[in-house]
Amino acid sequence: MDSDRSNSAAMIRMWRIYRTAKEMCMDRGYQMLEEDINISLSEFVDRFGKEGELEPDRSRMGFSAKPTEAMLIKYTDPPTPKVPNPQPQIGEIWIDFSGDENVGLKQLRDFMQHLVSTSYYSGILVTPKPITGMALRLLRGSTQFEDGPRGGVETFEEQHLLVNITKHELVPKHVLLSKEEKAQLLERYRLKETQLPRIQVTDPVAKYLGLRRGQVVKIIRRSETAGRYASYRWAI
């Protein structure tokens, strides 16, 4: 019976998605437990499996994560005379796995209200199918949307989290720069930020790292001639 459940395709699928979601949070800089990330399939089935069903219970899979000290510093603007004690632009995140087949405006709004009522800074909604067009439109305007959480809401399709794309050998390492590091970079190369190469925020790796407009990532590739080669991209 138990082996039957753990071998079901749906269970293995959700296990992989869960692990990728956890890894994503760790790569973004949230506090994560090592044992949570390396959760084994049988343990996953024990925790989230439903009696007599092949699908895991998605409503119990949601988790929250707190940013680490390093992340807080990275997301804090350098102090200015006007704002001597800037607040970090990041906070606790809530990751939810939607049990509904189709996610539309209603579900998204419920999710936003849940985030606001529990005072999370931002949220990620993982959906089985792509969300509807209207919901996307709501999401696009949600930075000014008064009901939404401060840090905004991201959505991921389940199938996009099946594999951790950053572990692919052709995906170079992306490192987010803080405001201060960005200023140093621009000073060092005497650039304006508009003169940097760009990366779209809809880019898969940018989505994975949750890049916001205006942030700069350092991309470190292996190079045959130079050993390491760093380039920079301005998220747009």
């Binding site: 509904d100 539309g104 405006l105 209603k106 579900q107 509807t132 067009g133 209207m134 919901a135």
Partner: peptide, 10 residues
């Protein structure tokens, strides 16, 4: 059409 889809989602 989007409205109909949304209502169906609900």
């Amino acid at each position: 059409d989007a409205l109909i889809e949304e209502r169906n989602c609900a």
